[in-house]
């Protein structure tokens, strides 16, 4: 059983996002280790890009800081290897935009990610129509390949939802709201219906992200899905703390216990 399947044994799972290099590289590795060892079931490890068009202000600012601190794709992959060396055993999914991967060279990137110990990829600007170039390279790298996690949005019509959900690997990343990343005070009323629609087409776990900011919201949504993704709130809370590693431990523990 691979790490992703293993992670979904106790649902709903808690999936925080944190960018490598923020507020600096060493701290980000410590933070991700702390999240992993205090309740996170899977972590979206963020790769930074100068023009993150699906992200709201919190993640924009954090990834900008990471770039100013000199983060690169190469350093990010080395950081994933370092996390494995420190005994992090949960799945680590690389989340980033396509252009830095292209610039690194897709084959080198995919091989580097596997060798470092990453478990899959989330690429928000690579919809179904464009994924073949990437998946053919991941497919040639290893059998079975590391999964490219497909995303679904509230705007996806049923027919499209079906083509995306069919053959989805790992899990489905369901974007809960139309918009960029960032916390919302209330979660869309239509979410239950949306999740039911997705489940008609797939048996892989369905995880919801965008807009979830508090353990209470996580609990509420966790009742409906297989996993809860927390990005901006995690970055903001930990990033604004004077003791980011301590805060990360607490943050993971709080969400973990809310999802019990």
């Amino acid at each position: 059983m691979n790490r992703i399947e293993n992670a979904f044994k106790n649902k709903p799972i808690f999936m925080p996002y944190f960018p490598l290099g923020y507020p600096d590289l060493d701290t980000s590795i410590d933070v991700i280790e702390a999240l992993a060892k205090n309740g996170a079931d899977l972590i979206e490890v963020g790769l930074s890009f100068s023009d993150p068009l699906a992200d709201g202000p919190v993640i924009q600012k954090a990834t900008q800081t990471a770039l100013e601190q000199g983060i690169t794709v190469k350093k990010s992959l080395a950081a994933v290897a370092e996390l494995r060396k420190r005994g992090v055993t949960i799945p680590l999914i690389l989340m980033g935009y396509y252009n830095p991967m292209l610039a690194y060279g897709l084959e080198a990137f995919v091989r580097g990610a596997r060798e470092a110990g990453a478990d899959g990829f989330i690429i928000p600007d690579l919809p179904l129509e464009e994924e073949e170039e990437f998946t053919s390279i991941v497919g040639a790298d290893r059998d079975p390949p590391l999964p490219l996690i497909r995303m679904l949005a509230p705007t996806s019509p049923n027919e499209r939802m079906e083509s995306i959900a069919r053959n989805a690997k790992g899990f489905i990343y369901l974007v809960s709201v139309t918009g960029v990343t960032g916390t919302r005070t209330s979660i869309s009323d239509g979410l239950g219906e949306l999740i039911a629609r997705v489940r008609e087409y797939t048996s892989v776990p369905v995880c919801v992200g965008f807009g979830i900011g508090t353990p209470e919201q996580a609990k509420q949504i966790g009742a409906l899905v297989d996993g809860v993704i927390v990005g901006s709130a995690c970055v903001k809370t930990i990033g604004s703390s004077e003791k980011p590693v301590e805060t990360a431990k607490q943050f993971a523990a709080e969400f973990r216990s809310a999802l019990k």
């Binding site: 068009l53 699906a54 396509y98 928000p124 600007d125 690579l126 919809p127 179904l128 129509e129 464009e130 995303m151 679904l152 949005a153 509230p154 705007t155 996806s156 019509p157 499209r160 995306i164 974007v175 139309t178 918009g179």
Partner: peptide, 21 residues
């Protein structure tokens, strides 16, 4: 798609799923 999305190897639709519809 109804029309070609690419000009040779260039072009395409590299956007978040929310915008595809």
């Amino acid at each position: 798609t109804l029309l070609p999305t690419k000009f040779g190897i260039y072009g395409g639709q590299f956007v978040p799923e929310t915008l595809m519809p």
